[in-house]
Design a protein around this nucleic acid. Structure first.
Lengths: 332, 332
DNA sequence: TTGTATGCGTTATCAG
DNA sequence: CTGATAACGCATACAA
């Protein structure tokens, strides 16, 4: 069933049918009704390929993310998807599998599909030379990074002031008397880098000496990050290492450390990051820094709309984090 | 840059270029090389719309799921996406938002996009009359349900024997001496129904009387299912209700109950379901029934390939669950 | 307000 | 092995 057949059945021309489909006002209500009813009877829907061939757009955007199985990425994609669908856009999902190599490929793949924009979630921190090459090449699709930053022309970023948040947290704990704060991180994203720097900023500003022994890095590819973190901290406690606070770049890491702490019969502030469900699963419940991913996603989608409408959009927007207080740390 | 320009630059016809693009063997290696080099120089990629207009397929499948923010759905989609991409398929993601109404719409939306197949994740249990209507309507796209079952012609299902697994678990606990087992459930999916029936089967087979007070249903739309479950069980414990085992349809529910149990200073077997990360976040670590979603996804994709190749595929495939033993219950 | 004719970029058919 | 050309289904400029 195509537009020609509908036109014949409705006794009008294909142009008129096309106008009805596209809500063109220049159609008599009589024709319009007739066409609509014929379309309904035959439950006809226009072929999107043919349509896209003309309009160069199918109201579809691509989302690029390392792994949708990761809770944080899943939340982000979920939020983006809802915002986008509310505005009539479909979502093409690409999981790159954390291999920076293929990011490049996927970028091409998506723009070959003629998506209207591409969102990147959980992207790497370094200035990817391939990405800039991509931006230079003919295929200019609006590129929007969520919870990350890349200083490239034509790339728009929405992020969270995680560095400041982390730094302030360190200062706050220092005022509470903490002098031996541990820091745990895993992935190598821009976001991870910000948190690390924030921690180091704080340590420095408090006049403390950085202690490499308390700066833990967990390989994000291990079977279980939680278990790995837990055993490292168990060893530290057994070795009698002095620790009076822990800050983690992600909740799952914080939970691992928390379990080790409880097992060691100790108790001090632990702060997670991303405010995921993990924070409420553990006991005691984990205080966590919320990076406001929902807000970020909304802004990202608004930014996309601005770009597509030709308005000039802000290329770097920063939202502020918010501490979700639970049992492992409470402000006075 | 289109096929015509490439043809001109390479000094051949569009037909030859098209053959090169599609790996048609009937091209001299000389022409082939020439065309390939011209394509590379101009980093040309064929327009997928024009292509789809002829071939009726763009190697894209749709995935329909209530909410990608849900950890279980996220894991499933992640697994499907990987399998599919390995085989050259892209993924169009649609989150229906748990509203059965819109499932119908999304189904149409996806087939309008001319996807090659549609996977449904976390779908409702009842025989959706709209779905069967959909299947009857002209738009016949292979429909594959993961971790669910719908007895409809042309619908293929992969699932887990959760009913048996749950039933066996009850029997096992009975033999261990448990006589007052509680059951917690939330959503209203096919999977949820199976678990509930499995529990009731087990209770009956053990000659126990069903206790409505210990059959807890949590509204899946509450702010926090975990917290809700926890407070319900706290109340039960305070009221002196006798409970000597808990089975939950999902880990997050089990964790809530677990926290209440620990707080009440009690200890008995708790079994979660889906073997998610939640199970290792809590203390004691949660024993959980794994529904082998990765295996299910692989099978689902294989099924899709069979269907698309015209082979006749199995329309109902059942994998068996596997208990992941942790601290809340260990087999002897 | 309506219809005709043309083009969008490929693939497929057929003749060479 | 190659090339010309007709589809594919729709949008749109232009004419009426």
């Amino acid at each position: 069933m195509n537009i020609k057949e509908i036109a014949k059945l409705a006794g009008v021309s294909v142009a008129t049918v096309s106008r009805v489909i596209n809500n063109n006002p220049n159609v008599s209500s009589a024709s319009k009704e007739k066409v609509l009813s014929v379309m309904a009877e035959n439950n006809y829907t226009p072929n999107l390929f043919a349509r896209g061939l003309n309009t160069k757009s199918i109201n579809t955007v691509g989302i690029l993310c390392p792994d949708i199985g990761d809770v944080n990425h899943a939340r982000t994609v979920s939020s983006l998807e809802h915002s986008l669908r509310d505005r009539g856009y479909d979502v093409l999902l690409c999981c790159t599998g954390r291999q920076s190599k293929s990011t490049h490929e996927y970028l091409h793949l998506l723009s070959d599909k003629r998506v209207d924009a591409i969102f990147m979630v959980g992207c790497a921190g370094e200035e990817d030379p391939e990405l800039s090459e991509y931006q230079k090449s003919g295929k200019r699709v609006p590129l929007i990074i969520v919870n990350g930053y890349l200083d490239l022309p034509g790339v728009y970023c929405v992020l969270c002031d995680e560095r400041t948040a982390m730094c302030d947290m360190v200062k706050e704990l220092f005022e509470r008397g903490c002098r031996n704060m541990a820091f745990i991180e895993d992935s190598d994203t821009y976001s991870a880098y910000q948190k690390r720097q924030g921690f180091l900023d704080g340590i420095k500003l408090c006049g403390l000496a950085p202690n490499p022994k308390l700066h833990i890095r967990i390989d994000p590819f291990v079977q279980s990050e939680l278990f790995c973190t837990k055993s490292i901290f168990s060893q530290l406690f057994e070795a009698g290492e002095r620790i009076d606070a822990i800050l983690a770049a992600d909740d799952i890491l914080a939970v691992g450390a928390l379990q080790a702490m409880v097992q060691a019969g100790r108790s001090f502030p632990i702060i997670g990051f991303n405010n995921s469900e993990h924070a409420v699963c553990c006991t005691p419940a984990l205080t966590s820094m919320d990076n406001r991913i929902d807000v970020q996603c909304n802004i990202a989608v608004e930014t996309m709309l601005d770009i597509l409408q030709g308005k000039d959009a802000i290329d770097k927007l920063v939202v502020s984090a918010k501490l979700e207080e639970r049992e492992t740390y409470r402000r006075e």
